[in-house]
């Protein structure tokens, strides 16, 4: 099975939020409050347990004509090649599917919350509300519409996107498409265009959801150089073992001294 994923081309996003709505509808994601956040047209805030697509809106003075430009970007789980959430999950609830995506099994997750601080993108979260809410108390995030993929369908967000800003497909093909689009934009003078999550040699081994951005990643609330925390885990275990040996030697050594 080929690895499937998203390429989100923010240069053609119109900020309609149809992806947010389609995702909520298809996946039965409960509402998580209606707030006015005072951040342009973004009243969603960010990805979380009950927001699996999030459209960011950034208003900037444009560099070229002195006017103003509006950046819009539909953010989503990156379905990392080296996924920290999956690595640290102590129940095996998080798993990698035959499509290469990373999915929570709702009937296994016990809500330990370890995946939440593990994620270098701040995507996954524990749904509040306890058992009164659907999947309350459990870790929740984008499933790449695992159920739709199994039926040969396209994820709801990509299906509904009216400008094809969200493209779904085979990761290798999407990467080639992203490269081509970047070249096209650079040739037409959009020098600030850059790809994000497309490089298999980055700190997460490349994302299953890559982006074309028109500014630096942190402008959109993305980490500029994400690294999977478990990359350092062998070193951590070594140091913990050393510390444990030191402790055993120290405490038992305390008995070796003079009586009293």
């Amino acid at each position: 099975m080929a690895r499937m994923g998203f390429f989100t081309d923010t240069s053609v996003c119109i900020g309609c939020k149809a992806c947010e709505v389609a995702c909520k509808e298809w996946n039965g994601v409960p509402d998580d409050g209606f707030d006015l956040l005072g951040s342009s047209y973004d009243n969603t805030g960010g990805l979380g347990a009950s927001t699996w697509r999030h459209v960011a809106f950034i208003e900037q003075p444009a560099k070229a004509n002195g006017d103003f430009r509006w950046l819009m970007e539909s953010d989503v789980c990156k379905h990392c090649t080296h996924a920290a959430c999956l690595d640290v999950c102590p129940t095996g609830s998080l798993f990698r599917t035959e499509f290469g995506s990373v999915v929570v099994q709702d009937d296994i997750c016990n809500g330990c919350g370890y995946c939440v601080p593990a994620c270098p993108f701040g995507v996954i979260d524990r749904r509040s509300g306890g058992t009164a809410v659907k999947n309350g108390g459990l870790a929740q995030k984008c499933t790449l519409c695992y159920d739709r993929l199994g039926a040969g369908m396209t994820p709801a967000c990509a299906q509904t996107c009216p400008t094809e800003s969200i493209q779904f497909g085979d990761i290798d093909e999407l990467r080639a498409r992203a490269d081509a689009r970047l070249r096209e934009l650079h040739e037409s003078g959009v020098a600030e265009a850059q790809l994000y999550g497309h490089d298999p040699d980055d700190g997460i081994g490349g994302a299953g959801a890559m982006f074309l951005l028109l500014d630096e990643p942190e402008t959109y609330g993305l980490p500029p150089d994400p690294v999977v925390t478990t990359r350092d885990l062998p070193d951590m275990w070594k140091r913990a073992a050393l510390a444990a040996v030191a402790m055993a030697a120290g405490v038992l050594g305390a008995f070796a001294g003079r009586r009293g």
Binding site: P90, G92, N110, G111, T131, G137, L138, L233
Partner: peptide, 23 residues
């Protein structure tokens, strides 16, 4: 007590994962 679903504590015992310090 800190689990989102305390009744599912035993799910920790269905796997042993060296990549998960919690496991």
């Amino acid at each position: 007590h800190d689990l989102g679903r305390p009744s599912r504590f035993v799910n920790m015992l269905r796997v042993a994962k060296p990549t998960s310090p919690m496991s």
